[in-house]
Every structure is written in C-alpha cells, then in structure tokens.
Design a protein around this nucleic acid. Structure first.
Lengths: 160, 160
DNA sequence: TATTGTTATACTCTATAACTATA
DNA sequence: TATAGTTATAGAGTATAACAATA
C-alpha cells in the first residue's frame, strides 16, 4: 500500500499561510482603495527616480508650484498641497539652503514672502519634470496612451 | 479731482496672496498627483462616516479582509494592505478587545494565528460596507455610473 | 480683528532591529 | 535556516496652540 492512502489527502498546491490567495473583492469595488493602490505604485517609482535629484515628492511639488507661479507665498503652496503652514517652513528653508529657491519680500503685502526658483532650481526642475513624465508612463505601462488620457480625465472630473 | 486719478490704478479684483489662482498645470498632467487628489477626497468623507462605527479606514480594510477570508493571518493582511507587521499588532489587539474579531490557533501552522470576525463584527461590517458604498458614490458624484465603472476598471488595470 | 510666517510641541504613521516559538 | 507574531524604538508625517509683524 502506498502511504498516500493511509494519510490525509495531499493538496496539489500546498496551502501555507503566506501563499494563499487573499480575496479582496469588496475593497476592489471602492474608488478610494483603487486610487490609493495606483498612487502607491506610482509614488514608489517616483521616490526612487527623484532621489537622483535629491528631491522628495513633496519637494518636487513645491518646486513645480514655485516654477510656474513665481512670487507664490508659502501659504498658497500649503493650500494647493494640503500641507499645514508649520510643516512647510522647514521644507522651504532646506530648499533655500540648497540654493534651489529664494525668498523675496512680497511687493503688495509686508507680511508675506514671495518664493522664486533660482537658475539652478529651474535647471534641476526641468530635468526632474522630464524624468517624472517618463516614470509615470512607465509606472502605468499597462495602459495605452488613450486609456491613460481617459483615466486622468476621469480622475480630474472627480475632484475638479 | 477724484483720488483714483492721483493714485496707482486700482485692480478690479484685488490680488491678495491668499486669493490669487495658482497654476497647477504640470502637476495635473501626472497620474500620481490625480490619483492622490481623488484618494484624499474620498478618504475625507470615508473617515467622517466611518467614525459612526468607530472604525478608521485601515480598521475597515482589515475587517473586510477577515470577513471574506476567515482564518487569514496577520501576515497576509500586512501584505495585502502594505502595512508592516509590527504596526498591525496593536490594531488587531484593539479590535479583538472591542469584540469585533477573535484569534484562533492556525490549523496547519503552529506559528500562525487565524483571524475570524465575531457575530458583532460581521453585523457591524455589513452595515459599514453599505455606508462605504454609498459614500463612495457620493464622493464621486461628478461621475456617471458608466464613468465610475470605467475609472475603476482603468485604475485596476494599472496595478493588477 | 484677521492674516503671514514662525516656533514649539504632541500625536500618528511608518520603519528597523531583535526576540520567541515554531517550521 | 526561515517564518509568524511580537516588543521596543526611531523617524517621518501631520496636528494644534501661540507668538510677532503686518493688514
């Protein structure tokens, strides 16, 4: 007699806890869950590639805002990025210290300070933006160009 | 003579720093940025509504996973939710303490512990899931039913 | 009185190392 | 030797209160 007839039936695919398939059907029906998964996938590659420029994803967003909105205030950046003012101070200070941007007195408001990218900051950002565009396409390579366009259009329709 | 002829030309719309429009054109071209904006919008309403059940968004995800995967291990939940094992311990302990789930010895592995929802946990989750589905539609009310379906399909295509 | 930038501080989330029990 | 669950702890991100200077 073969041993298999004496023992419990053997599974073809061994079911060890770490290998079992997990059912996520319900969560996959939620927009928030899916949006977060996509964000996590993109931001992971983003963080890796931007490290070459010494930028975090928040640094990148701040610099992009300053680049296209010269004279923008810290407060405006905080609103656009949903960051609290006290948490923005050190980030801006750090980027001023590394020579990426400068603070100039605001022309119309003595309380405010206008932010401007330096020549070095602009050069870095133009390269970083190209890297960002490339990496985004790479991170969503399962999508056709048309699908990616549709996806972004629908995402914006949700919050705009 | 009116004072307006002596002073600098007055703006029709006063441009105070906090009211100026900020140009976010470039960032809006990025999938990661748009996915995060949508996630933030959904999660805000999610957190508000789930507070009625005493659940955070992570609590909800954990319970949903246990509900549809009885006997699931802490490790599997960590993988599915991208949470590190040490950070899951207190969450599960808390939900066991509030009687939403229980830990039972894993049948095939003496090291592992199987998680199961209690009757109270199941009742809570079925109500919470209905609330979640409703709130998600509400948070994305700019979308038609067909658009929402397309959006989720495309998001899943990115990471699946 | 309200707002900008700021400091200090607390709380939460996320990450790493190391231990035990079991495989 | 490797893995599951756990503890302790460090670090990053996010939160509120309060202050000086300016509107």
């Amino acid at each position: 007699m073969s041993p298999s007839l004496k023992t419990a039936p053997r599974r073809i695919v061994p079911v060890t806890p770490s290998l079992e398939r997990v059912d996520t059907t319900f969560m996959q029906s939620l927009l928030g869950y899916n949006a977060r998964r996509v964000w996590l996938q993109v931001i992971e590659l983003f963080a890796t590639r931007m490290a070459a420029y010494g930028l975090t994803s928040v640094d990148f967003s701040v610099l992009s805002l300053v680049l296209y909105n010269p004279g923008i205030t810290s407060r405006q950046i905080c609103s656009a990025l949903r960051v609290l003012p006290p948490n923005m101070v050190s980030k801006i200070s750090a980027m001023e210290k590394t020579g990426l941007l400068v603070r100039k007195p605001h022309p119309g408001d003595g309380r405010a300070i206008g932010l401007h990218v330096t020549q070095a900051g602009e050069k870095l950002m133009l390269a970083a933006e190209e890297t960002a565009t490339d990496l985004e396409v790479e991170a969503s390579s399962n999508l056709s160009v048309a699908e990616r366009k549709t996806l972004i259009r629908l995402l914006q329709k949700v919050y705009l």
